[in-house]
């Protein structure tokens, strides 16, 4: 047995099976992830990127194949049972936080990810102190707004907070689903920097979907590209560091039909 933190074997997900709309979103995916891997995931719309993360997180159950997290077979485990291993940040900033609850309450429910929730006071004084310290890292002034509802924050602030919330209890696996795509470029740059800092600092094993190929090449130690539910490219280490946007497009330009993706690099001739 290897030391894989995550292993997918022949994972297949079919939507609308048996109808005209049948779609093979994931087609026998094999993927092994070792602790500390920071993997960027690219691919055109409908390539299966989000489905991949959803199947790993348990939002969808696969139709075939096996999923192992930390040597546990979680293939049929519901989403809430996998939460002890997995933390997620979604594209939509409103998805990662509870808008009507306060900042400190959100942090408290995130700190208890995957743990038993008891009839003990949720936001204790000790926790409040810790949150205040941790929030200072963001440099957004949120440490002074602990009792305000999250709904008052901007998208960027909420997304930064969601990111921070994933590390209150360190996950074995961090899943980022285009978590900067809905932000304006400046905020997005900040959030991606924060992501890099946190991932490096805590040595988090991370899977990050991105639409931006520059990002995909710049961050992480490994990059995979999905196409029609299959892994088309899987590069890591030096090979990945030396890869340029141009090369990826030259090599796989024919399969990359997504304009957003191409817009980030030179136009293929």
């Amino acid at each position: 047995m290897s030391d894989n933190i995550l292993a997918l074997e022949g994972v297949t997900k079919i939507f609308n099976a048996g109808t005209l709309d049948e779609k093979r979103a994931l087609d026998h995916i094999d993927l092994k992830v070792v602790p500390g891997d920071f993997i960027t995931i690219i691919g055109s719309n409908g390539a299966g990127k989000s489905t991949l993360l959803n199947v790993i997180a348990g939002t969808y159950l696969p139709d075939d194949g096996r999923i192992m997290i930390a040597h546990q077979d979680v293939t049929r485990a519901p989403e809430h049972r996998r939460a002890r291993y997995i933390a997620r940040v979604f594209q939509n900033p409103t998805m990662g936080t509870a808008a009507d609850m306060t900042i400190e309450e959100n942090l408290s429910i995130a700190e208890l990810r995957g743990k038993r929730r008891r009839l003990k006071w949720g936001v204790t004084e000790a926790r409040r102190k810790r949150y205040s310290e941790i929030l200072k890292v963001l440099d957004l002034g949120l440490e002074d707004r602990l009792k305000q509802p999250v709904g008052l924050l901007s998208g960027g602030q909420r997304q930064s907070m969601t990111l921070l919330m994933t590390t209150l209890t360190l996950p074995q696996l961090l899943l980022l689903d285009e978590h900067t795509a809905a932000l304006d470029p400046r905020t997005a740059a900040k959030v991606i920097e924060l992501t890099e800092t946190m991932v490096t600092q805590h040595k988090l094993t991370t899977l990050m979907i991105t639409h931006n190929m520059n990002q995909a090449l710049r961050y992480g130690n490994r990059m995979i590209m999905l196409h029609q539910g299959r892994i088309q490219i899987d590069v890591q280490g030096d090979e990945k560091q030396q890869l340029t946007v141009r090369e990826v497009i030259d090599k796989f330009g024919t399969t990359l039909k997504d304009e957003t993706l191409l817009a980030c690099g030179p136009t293929p001739s």
């Binding site: 998805m95 990662g96 509870a98 808008a99 429910i109 208890l112 929730r117 008891r118 949720g122």
Partner: peptide, 28 residues
């Protein structure tokens, strides 16, 4: 008091953002 306990917060989050609290390990 109950709605400020750890479980109470989870209950409130269930009504506020069910997807989020499920991904945080609560059986909604």
């Amino acid at each position: 008091i109950f709605l400020h306990t750890e479980y109470g917060l989870a209950l409130r989050a269930t009504g506020n953002n069910e997807d989020m609290i499920r991904s945080l390990g609560v059986n909604t």
